[in-house]
Amino acid sequence: MILNGIITGIILILIGLYGMIAKRHIFKIILGLIIISTGIVLFFVSLGYVNNGIAPIISGDNLYVDPLPHTLMLTTIVVEVCITSLALVLALKIYEKYKTLDIKILEDI
């Protein structure tokens, strides 16, 4: 199996999924979400790659990379920033009230 961008993206998504399932700290769960989002971006941008293609800025008759995944991933990055900021602010409020971010302790309260 050759390690290219698609497989690396899938592996990053799996690592983030493991982090979200196994870790008990809220901040680490948010980090898993960020890793999943990065893996999705790498996966889709690699999916649009064409061999020997150049960036989709038209100048002459060349071979170009598919421009649609780039645009959709731009949307993904902005949405990821919004989700991360909201999640971090909520974690800040949780820590301010309960003085802990451990899910095991927060469940018992």
Partner: peptide, 12 residues
């Protein structure tokens, strides 16, 4: 990896 671009991408 590195195949042809999709139908919509070709159109764009």
């Amino acid at each position: 990896f590195g195949g042809e671009s999709g139908i919509a991408g070709e159109m764009y």
